[in-house]
Design a protein around this nucleic acid. Structure first.
Lengths: 189, 189
DNA sequence: TAGTTGACCAAAAAACTAAATCAGTCAAAG
DNA sequence: CTTTGACTGATTTAGTTTTTTGGTCAACTA
C-alpha cells in the first residue's frame, strides 16, 4: 500500500483538484487522501504550485494522446484537423479536472489556474503548429503563418463548441464540421 | 442652460460611466454633473439600469453608423466585411465607454455590464446578418447559416484583434486582412 | 541514517461587525 | 404641473478579530 508515495500524492491531488478546484484544495487534505504525512509531499514537490504543474503536464499529454488517437493518416487533412480539434475541445468539456479549472478561472479568477489554462492552450497550439507545418512542408496545404493560423483555428472551434452554447442550442460535431468545411476548403465567397 | 434636462442627464451619465464605470457611478454624482436634482432623473428613467440601457442603445447606433460609413459598395464583398468588422473592433478598443465597460466586466464581473456587452455583441451580429443575408439573396456569396457564419466571423476578428495581443505583438489591419482573406476567399487548403 | 511525520509558525483568508454609501421615494417648494 | 433634496432601508465598505493554510523542521521511526 505504502509503496509509491509519489504516485499516491499525485493521484490524491488530481482527485481533489477535480472535485474542489485548486484553491479549495488544501495540502493537509491531499496528505490525508494520499495516506501520507504532509511533510512527505514536500520531499517530492517544492510547493503546491509545482504539484499542480505536474498534474497539468500529464493532462496536456493525455489530451494530445487523445487527439493523436483520433487522427487517421488516410483521411483528408481538413478532416483530421476537425477530428483533432473537436476531440480536444470535447475533452475539455468532459474531463472533470478541466471543467473544474475552467469554472474556477471564470468564477474566482484564481491566478495560478489562469496561468495553467493558458499553458494548456499554448501547448495545444504548439501541437497543432507541428501538424500544420508538416502539411505545408509536404505541400498538402499552401504556406502561411502557421502560428496565427493555428491560433485562429483553435479560437474558431472554441467559439463553435463553447461560446455558441451561451446563447444557443449546442451545435453537433457534424454541424461544426459543416461550417468549418466552408472556411477550410473553399472560403466564404 | 436648463433647457433639455433629459439630454444633460444622459450626457452626464455617459461621461461618468466612461470615467468610473457603471458600478462606481452614483446617481447623486450624475445629478450633480447634470445640474439637476436627483429626483428629476427618475422622471425620465425608471432606474439606473434603464438610464444605462439608453446609453448602450446610442452606443450601438454609433458603432453601426461607423461600420456603415466605412463600407464602399463598389469594393468586393469580403473587403467590406473586413472593413466593417475591423472598424467595429477598433471602435471597441478606442471608445472610452467601451474600454471602461470591458475592463469592468473582466475585473469586477458586474452583472448589468456583462448583460449589456452581450447585448452589444448580439446587435453587431444582427447587423452583420443583415449584410450577409443580403449578399446571399443577391447571389454574391453561396447560401449558408448566416447566424452561425456572422457569429464565427465576429469571434475570428475578436481573436485576431484582442485575444492575440495577450501573448503577442498586435497584428496590423493589413496582417488581419491577409489572414482573413485566406479563410474568406480560398479556404485553408 | 535515510525517509517520514505532524506539531508549529507566519502569513493569508474568512468571518464578523460597525460605519458609510447608495438607489430610489416623496412631501414640500417653485 | 415640474423639480427638488432630505430621508430610508438595503447594500457595501472598512476595520478588526478569528480561523485556516502553505510550508518548515525537530523528533521519530524502521
Amino acid at each position: 500500500m505504502a509503496l509509491d508515495r509519489r504516485k499516491m500524492i499525485v493521484e490524491a491531488a488530481t482527485k481533489s483538484f477535480s472535485l474542489f478546484g485548486y484553491k479549495a484544495t488544501t495540502m493537509d487534505q491531499v496528505a490525508k487522501l494520499a495516506n501520507v504525512g504532509k511533510g512527505t509531499i514536500y520531499t517530492f514537490f517544492k510547493n503546491k504550485e509545482e504539484l499542480f504543474e505536474e498534474i497539468i503536464s500529464s493532462l496536456v499529454k493525455e489530451m494530445i494522446a487523445e487527439a493523436e488517437f483520433v487522427i487517421q493518416p488516410d483521411l483528408p487533412f481538413t478532416e483530421n484537423v476537425h477530428r483533432a480539434l473537436y476531440r480536444l475541445l470535447e475533452f475539455r468539456s468532459q474531463h472533470q479536472l478541466m471543467i473544474k479549472l475552467v469554472q474556477e478561472e471564470k468564477e474566482m479568477g484564481t491566478l495560478a489556474v489562469a496561468e495553467k489554462l493558458q499553458h494548456v492552450e499554448n501547448e495545444i497550439i504548439e501541437y497543432l503548429k507541428g501538424k500544420i507545418d508538416a502539411a505545408i512542408t509536404k505541400g498538402a496545404i499552401p504556406a502561411a503563418d502557421s502560428e496565427i493560423t493555428c491560433f485562429l483555428l483553435l479560437k474558431m472551434y472554441i467559439a463553435l463548441v463553447s461560446d455558441w452554447e451561451r446563447n444557443h442550442e449546442p451545435l453537433s460535431s457534424e454541424q461544426i464540421a459543416e461550417v468549418m468545411k466552408v472556411f477550410l476548403l473553399k472560403g466564404l465567397v
